[in-house]
């Protein structure tokens, strides 16, 4: 009598599991991760940030890249500031007290009225040429004085560009350092600062000794507050 060997056929999926279930070895994963980290490091320029937690303007966030300070955040919070800097620079900023120590100290002293000028490199490479011209012009306005949007447009030899000047200043990435707060509307009225934070603009101007009357200030060379 012949004996029949009955073998239960294996589920073919077992062969698939044998190949796929275990996954890559720890060494293979570690090598791939190490290559990934190197690729990411090479890709992103390093940007650092820190915060001056309690200033007269509230928390002031500062971010700097290799070429200088590239963002100042007022009336914001840490995630909001980090997201904004990342969007603009394409690099995820890393918090570093050490790298921002110099800038933070100067901004702190300035806002406490203990310093009248700051020596901090500013990186304006991320803005358009017109905006850069406007921001550079704003940097030349001396502390304690204000000019109007129209006057700034005239200085830039674009007398009809008052509104565009206003827009360029409204998107100033480095307020305080580029003193866009020293530019006001024709009547001396403080219009627009980081949206509607007129109070911050007034505080900065007061700090710099600009005579204020409510939300109006005296424009150099004119008599009386406002009109």
């Amino acid at each position: 009598m012949s004996r029949t060997k009955i073998v239960k056929a294996k589920d073919p999926m077992q062969a698939v599991d044998a190949l796929y279930a275990a996954g890559p070895s720890g060494t293979t994963v570690a090598a791939a991760q190490s290559r990934l980290r190197a690729a990411l490091r090479a890709q992103a320029p390093q940007v650092y940030y820190d915060v001056l937690p309690r200033s007269t303007l509230g928390a002031v966030y500062l971010a700097a890249g290799p070429d200088g300070l590239l963002a100042v955040g007022l009336a914001t919070n840490e995630p909001g500031f980090v997201r904004r800097v990342a969007r603009r620079t394409g690099a995820m900023p890393v918090r570093s007290t050490e790298r921002l120590r110099h800038a933070r100290q100067q901004v702190d002293e300035y806002l406490r009225g203990k310093r009248s000028a700051m020596q901090i490199d500013v990186d304006l490479s991320q803005v358009t040429p017109f905006q850069r011209a406007v921001l550079e012009a704003a940097r030349r306005i001396p502390r304690g004085t204000v000019i109007t949007y129209g006057e700034m447009a005239a200085r830039l030899r674009r007398p009809r560009a008052g509104r565009a000047v206003g827009q360029a200043l409204a998107h100033n990435p480095v307020p305080i350092l580029v003193p866009c707060h020293r530019v006001v509307s024709s009547g001396g009225e403080l219009r627009g600062y980081l949206g509607d934070r007129i109070g911050l603009k007034a505080r900065l101007l007061k700090l710099e000794g600009v005579p204020m009357l409510g939300n109006r200030c005296r424009i150099a060379g004119r008599s009386g507050a406002g009109r």
Binding site: L40, A86, G90, M92
Partner: peptide, 11 residues
């Protein structure tokens, strides 16, 4: 994958 993610992440 991650380089693409890095570029898209801020948005």
């Amino acid at each position: 994958t991650f380089l693409r993610a890095l570029r898209a992440f801020p948005r």
